[in-house]
Amino acid sequence: MPNTGPAIVVDKLCKYYGANKAVDNISFTVKSGEVFAFLGPNGAGKSTTAEVIETIRVPTSGTVTVLGMDVTKHKAKVVRRIGVLPQNFSSFDRITVRESLQYFARVFGCRADVDALMDLTDLRHKSGAPFNTLSGGLKQRLGIAIALVSDPEIVFLDEPTTGLDPHARHQIWDVLRGLKARGKTVFLTTHYMEEAELLADTVAIIASGRIVAMDSPAKLTEEHAEQTRLTLTSIDATAVGLIRSLGFSPIPKGNDSLSVPIKTPDDVRRILAEIERAGLALGGLDVRKPNLEEVFLKLTKTPAVSAQVRAA
């Protein structure tokens, strides 16, 4: 039955491992057709939440509905309508790419177009290669192709680019853009800000088992990030007074650098014109827009979480 409501509804979800609270009373809704990124440092609870939604784990309390079905009561029906790329995906070592796709198609009892799936994930040239001979990026792409074998309405991708080199990561992003273009609902867990910013319609930031912010990347940035900053390097110390006289609040950084919060491109022109008029030397400049990483670091700023984020 086609789903007309939200793809996923999580309501007051808690998950304990013994006395350890992995997920702490979280609620959110994923709309049909959107890319929902679940962002958090390692151990924040994002994979546990995803695994509860994917029917692998049982919630300690709260409810999770997928396509209108309670995951604890309708596992058999739910798994037929979702596709999952688990964290650290692996498959049968000596089974080829084509055979793996055929195997999962038989398991789901569907007539999957294996060639089309290999084309979508750019795996056609590796169709006869056994799994244990594939590179990390190719394995992840096969995992995504397998997740799509039953033409699911929701695709769960748990850290699909972790451990991949930049080239392989960009290839995975191309595949995700393809899914988005096909109107799939994508539930993406990641600790890469750039990934979420580029691909997601909605981002939920989770830290220590709690959702600390949730909105579109643009709104999160607008709401939580600092202003755009102009950084001036190798500049005379007298520039501080000059820029202040224009109504800005420059912050000295090191011996000969200044950081100036600005609002518009015209602010940059005004400051540079004044420096030129005063005949002050200027070594270099950099204009940095606020980004999701800044928001993330700000919202997850506990010592332990910050350390994890830096490590990630």
Binding site: I56, V79, R80, S90, S91, F92, F108
Partner: peptide, 13 residues
Amino acid sequence: QKGILRKLATTPI
């Protein structure tokens, strides 16, 4: 160990 059983858990097997 490889997590293949976790993948199989999200299939109709």
